[in-house]
Amino acid sequence: MSVDVNEVAEAEVALRTSEARQQVLIEGVPQLVWRAVDHGRWAWASPQWTAKTGQAEADSHDFGWLDMVHPEDRPLAMEAWAGAIDGAEFHADYRLCHPAEGRYRWYQTRATPVRNDRGDIVEWLGTSTDVDDLRRLQKRQEVLLAELQHRTRNILAVTRSIISRSDDGERSTEDYVAHLQGRLAALARAQVLLTRAAGTDVDLEGLIWDELLAQAVSEDQISAAGQSVAISPKCAEVLTLAIHELATNATKYGAFSRASGRLDVGWSIETRDNRDWVVILWKERGVPVIDAFPRRQGFGLELITRRIPYELRGHGTLELKPEGIESRIEFPLRSGESILQTDAGSH
C-alpha cells in the first residue's frame, strides 16, 4: 500500500493550524475554560484559570481546582457534579479565589458532556464566567427598589403628618395654605438632595443654606459656618424639615422678622465615647423676648424635641432666650445610613 506523502504533510499542517486556532480561541475568551472527566476530576485548565486564581494549571488537575473555590461553596459544587453524572449539563454558581483583589468573586460555571459513538460520556468541557459585578448590580438594584418603595411610603406618611399638624383649627385658610406649601417645599428639597446621587451622603452646610435662602432673607443677617460634615440620607431628610421649621419661625416671629435681627448657625463634630457626634447650634439675636417664640407649638417643636431623638438617636432642644430662640440639635454621625432605616412620619 502506498501513502501519499504530500497528503500526510498537508493533513499534519491542517491539524497544527486547527490546534493553533483552537488555542487562540480558548486563550482569547474571557471565560475560564477547562476539561474534566468523571465526577468533576479536572484534566486541563486554560491559562485564564491561572491568571485569575493564581493556581498553576497542573495543580488544578483531579480535584485540585476545589482549593480555589470558597470553602462554603465546595459542597454545592460537588452536589452539582453528583447531579450531572446521569448526563445532564453541569450548572453551578460559586465563588473563586482572586488573590489580586484579596477576595473571592462569583462565577457562573457550566459544562457540557462530550460523548463517543456509543453515547458514553468521555469528558466534560466547561467554562466559568465571572458574574461578580452583575450580582453586585442586581443586589444594588434590589436595595434601590426597596429604598424607593420605602421612600414613597415615608413621603406619604410625612405628608400626612404635615397636613394634619399644619391645621390647628385657628389658622386662616391663607395661613394654613402658606404653612402647608412651605413644609411640602422643604420635603421636596430634601428629596432632591437624596436623589442627586442615590445612597451617598449629603453636605450639611449646603443643606442648611438651602433652607435659609429658601426664606428669601438677607444674607447679611446670617452667620452660618462649621466643619465640613457629610450626613447620611436618613439624617438629611429629618434635618431639612427641622431647619425649615426654625427658619420659618425666624421669618414670622424671630431674627428674620426685623432688620435688627441676627442668626448665628454653627456646627461641629464632637467625639463622645469613641463616636463622632454632629452638634448644630441655632442662635437668634436682636428679637424682643415677647415676639421670639412661635405662637403655636406643633410640628416644628415635635421635629426637634421628639423626632431628633427617635429618628437620629440624638437630642433636640428649643428654648426662649433673652434675645431670641436658641436650638441645639445633636446626633451620632452614621455615614451612609440608608433612608431605609428612616421611620419618619410613622409615629
Rank of each mutant, 00 (worst) to 15 (best):
V3C: 00
D4A: 01
E12S: 06
R16Y: 01
T17N: 12
A20M: 10
Q22G: 09
V24H: 05
L25R: 04
W34Y: 15
R41K: 14
A43D: 13
W44L: 04
Q48P: 00
T50K: 13
A51N: 11
Q55Y: 04
A58M: 06
D62Q: 13
G64E: 09
W65K: 04
L66D: 02
L76E: 00
A80G: 08
W81A: 07
G83E: 12
A88H: 12
E89D: 12
F90M: 13
A100H: 11
A100T: 11
G102F: 08
R105L: 12
T112F: 07
E123K: 10
S128N: 14
D133H: 11
L137N: 08
Q141R: 14
V143W: 11
A146D: 03
Q149I: 13
R151M: 12
I155A: 12
I163Y: 07
S164F: 02
D168L: 11
E170F: 08
T173V: 12
D175L: 09
Y176H: 13
A178Y: 03
A178P: 00
H179E: 13
L180D: 01
Q181H: 11
R183D: 03
L187V: 05
A190M: 04
V192S: 11
G199K: 06
G206A: 12
Q215E: 15
A216C: 05
A224H: 08
S232R: 04
L241E: 05
L241T: 06
L241M: 13
A242E: 05
H244V: 05
F256Y: 11
R258I: 02
S260D: 15
V279W: 02
I280R: 09
L281E: 15
K283Q: 15
R285D: 08
P288N: 10
D291Y: 03
A292N: 05
A292P: 00
P294W: 07
L303R: 12
R306Y: 03
L312P: 03
R313L: 12
E319R: 15
E330N: 07
F331E: 05
P332H: 10
G336E: 07
I339C: 03
I339F: 02
D343W: 09
